[in-house]
Amino acid sequence: MALKTKTSTRIGVTILGWGIALWLFFPIFWMFLTSFKSEVQAISTPPKLFFMPTLSSYAEVFERASYWHFTFNTVIVSVGATAIAIALAVPAAYSMAFMPSKRTRGTLLWMLSTRMLPPVGVLVPIYLLARNTHLLDTCTGLAIVDMLTNLPIIVWMLYTFFREVPAPILEAGRMDGATRWQEMTMVLLPLALPGIASTALLSLILCWNEAFWSLNLTSSHAAPLTAFIASFSSPEGLFFGKLSAASTLAVAPILVFGWISQKQLVRGLTFGAVK
C-alpha cells in the first residue's frame, strides 16, 4: 500500500516537473519554430504548429546585418568580462573565506546590495564616465561595466565554494612551505575548480544576455548580439519571423555551450565532496 502511494506520488511529481519544464521551455521552442515561418505564418491566428518551414527570415537577417560582427563583440565582451571578474574575485573570495575579519559579512552584504539597485539608477553617471574616458561604444567599456555588475555575484559564489574546502588542507600547504599565492594557486584552485568553472559559466551567460548596458553604451562599433536582436524589433513595426530568426541566432551559441557544459555546471552546484 505504502509502495503504491509512493509510486503515484512519484508519477505526479514527474508530470508536474515535466509540465513546469515544458512551460519554461515553450517560449524558446516557439521562437525557434517562428524563425522558420514566413512573416504571414508568424502572425496567423490561430497560431500554426505545422507548416512548411522556410529559411527566408534567416536569409533576410543575414542580408540586413553583420551577424558575425555582433557575435564577435559578444564573445569578446563576455569572455573578457568573465576572465577579469574571476581574476579579481578569486583572491577576494579567498581572503574572505579563509581570513575573515569582523567586517567580512558586512562587506559581502554590501557587495550584494549593489545588485539590488536598478541599473537605470546609475545610467547617467556611468554613461558620462564612459563618455569622458572615451569608452563609449567600445568592447573594453562594455566589458568593464558587465564585469563590475557581475563581480558581487561572482565573489559570493566563489566565497561559498571556497568555504567548502576544509581549512586544514590549506594549512597543510602553509606548513609545507607554500606562500599565500602558492597556497591559493596550487592547493585551493585545483580543489575548487568545478565551482570556479560553474561560476565562470554563469558569468558568461549573464554577460551574453546582458541588454541594458549594451543598448545604452554601444551603437555600432561594439554592439553585441543583444543589440542585434533589438535592431530587428522596432523601426518598421514588428516582424516576428525575422525577430525570431535573429533571436535564435543570438541565443544559439550560449545555449549549445551551456548544454555541453551542463555536467560541469551540475558538478559545480553540488560541489563539496572534497574531503
Binding site: P166, P168, I169, A178
Partner: peptide, 20 residues
Amino acid sequence: VEPGKRGLAMVFQSYALYPH
C-alpha cells in the same frame, strides 16, 4: 617566522591530505 620556515611538520586530525 612563517609556518613553513620554522622547521616543523604537522599531522592534522582530519589528515588534510591534498585530495587532488
